Amino acid sequence: MNKDTTLVVGASGSTGKHLVTQLLNKGEQVKVIVRSPEKLPDAWKNNSQISIIEASILDVSEQDRVNYVKDCHAVASCLGHSPTLKGIYGKPKKLVTDAVSLLCHAIQMNSPKAPVKFVLMNTAGNRNRDLDEPISFWQRLVIGLLRILLPPHQDNEKAADYLSVEVGQKDSSVEWVVVRPDSLIDNDKVTKYELYASPTRSAIFDPGKTSRINVGHFMASLITDDNIWKQWKGKMPVIYNEIA
């Protein structure tokens, strides 16, 4: 296993691009699996730190997935559903959940000598059931409706549940962190941000703001800084931009 190689899925997305850039800045070797390489920055295509794999993680063979993660010390997912009718209501409905479970299985099949870090980008609208986070009646009602009306929300919940329940806290091959940003915004620079074990405000009725570049910075820090990893391993930190 190469201690400096991270596999990223969802790298062509708005947050995934920031994560890859932050990893490169920290000296990581990065593998990206993307269906449309033409969406990637041109600078990546001639960068010796990046390996670009043109594929869909759900469609490749089990052996290919095993090979993709074999030399990686970390795997990160910034996958999400496109904000279109097809992306929200079309297939694959369980894009994030299926990718997480398939990648974790691939890691486990390799029986790595040390646990591989798995970092999943999720949402502050998803509760950490391990902490029994309080939620108001009205927010519970709205989230219940979201599960019915917006399949991507349920996909995010099930992906986090897979890590929390199926992988758990004692797996010998996979350790995990689920990163929960609130309302995502764009920013050109990393700014100060705050991390909490649970939301400090309602994601439905009083959402905070989180810049995508800050999410990428925090995910990269988890992957490259063992002290930060130890602090949040097996948890679902919520990240907000610091309010000036």
Rank of each mutant, 00 (worst) to 15 (best):
D206K: 15
V75G: 00
D59M: 08
M236A: 13
K189G: 01
N25T: 07
I52V: 10
L149P: 05
T5I: 02
I33L: 14
L195C: 08
Y240G: 00
R212M: 06
A11C: 07
V215T: 11
D155H: 07
K192S: 15
Y193E: 01
L85G: 06
M1E: 09
I53N: 08
E62V: 12
V238G: 01
H153R: 12
V116P: 00
V32E: 04
I33S: 10
P37D: 05
P152C: 08
V30M: 04
P115I: 09
S136T: 12
S82F: 11
W229C: 01
I57R: 05
R127S: 14
M121G: 07
E242V: 03
V75C: 04
A124R: 01
Q154L: 15
K26I: 00
S12C: 04
Q231N: 10
I135V: 13
C104I: 09
Q22M: 11
S14R: 15
S36L: 10
D42N: 13
V60C: 11
L58F: 08
G216S: 09
S183Q: 10
K117S: 04
D182C: 00
E157Y: 10
V8A: 03
T21H: 10
W232S: 06
D71W: 04
D4H: 15
K233Q: 13
G216F: 02
E242T: 13
E28Y: 07
S183E: 09
S101W: 01
L120T: 07
S61H: 02
Y89D: 02
Y68G: 01
P134W: 07
D182H: 06
P41H: 05
Y68Q: 11
K3A: 14
Y162P: 01
I204Q: 04
S164G: 06
K91D: 14
R201S: 15
A76C: 14
Q108N: 09
G10T: 02
D4G: 02
A197M: 11
I50K: 03
V60L: 01
P41K: 04
P151Y: 10
L19M: 07
D59Y: 09
N110F: 03
S56Q: 06
E38D: 14
T15Q: 07
S36R: 15
A124G: 13
L79N: 06
A159V: 04
Y162M: 07
N227D: 14
F205G: 03
D161E: 14
Q63L: 09
K45G: 03
V96W: 01
T123Y: 00
V165H: 12
T200H: 10
Q63C: 01
I52C: 05
H81N: 13
V165F: 09
L24V: 08
V190N: 07
H73Y: 11
D64H: 08
V32F: 04
D59T: 08
N128H: 06
T210I: 01
V60D: 06
V142T: 10
